[in-house]
């Protein structure tokens, strides 16, 4: 995977068994996600991307909505990118944050899931930066001894 020396490492956060870590890229931001299995890798990457954007706090009493997602791609890496790009569209356009994910099907090139989302409160949320897009550059999803590791670079 990408250089893993200390100088490359940025902030990190854990979501249960999933580790998310920003890594250095000159103009943009890289996200490295390690997870024990593929579903938690996808969920962790989604949460990691939102963490890069900021602390998105659901509006008090906001009604939860369900977004059904069905994606097919040539390989795991492309599927992960499409998954994140789809979520980014909803975050940017609908201004929602992710409450939970219910997976319905996951295979190497296909995912079906429900995203349970809620509008975020722009006043209460602490936004750090806008992610313009999820790029294909240096995109990787690979098995590891502990599970899976993914790397993706966001255009900032």
């Amino acid at each position: 995977m990408h250089g893993t020396d200390e100088s490359d490492r940025g902030e990190s956060i854990r979501f249960g068994a999933v580790q998310c870590e920003m890594f250095a890229h000159t103009a943009d931001i890289g996200l490295r996600v390690t997870a024990p299995e593929e579903t938690s890798l996808l969920e962790g990457a989604a949460r990691g991307m939102l963490w890069c954007i900021g602390d998105l706090i659901a509006a008090p009493g906001a009604e939860l909505r369900t977004r059904r997602v069905e994606l097919s791609a040539a390989d795991r890496a492309e599927l992960l990118r499409d998954w994140l790009a789809e979520l980014l569209y909803f975050v940017d356009h609908d201004r929602v944050t992710l409450e939970r994910i219910e997976f319905r099907e996951l295979s190497p090139g296909r995912v079906r899931a429900d995203w349970i989302v809620a509008p975020y409160d722009p006043e209460a949320s602490r936004l750090r930066r806008e992610i313009k897009a999820v790029t294909y550059h240096a995109l990787r999803v690979e098995p590891t001894r502990e599970g899976w590791c993914a790397e993706v670079i966001f255009d900032i």
């Binding site: 100088s7 490492r9 940025g10 902030e11 920003m22 890594f23 250095a24 890229h25 000159t26 103009a27 943009d28 931001i29 900032i156």
Partner: peptide, 9 residues
């Protein structure tokens, strides 16, 4: 840029 965003932070 000469410094990554992480390095700048």
């Amino acid at each position: 840029r000469r410094m990554s965003r992480s390095a700048a932070i």
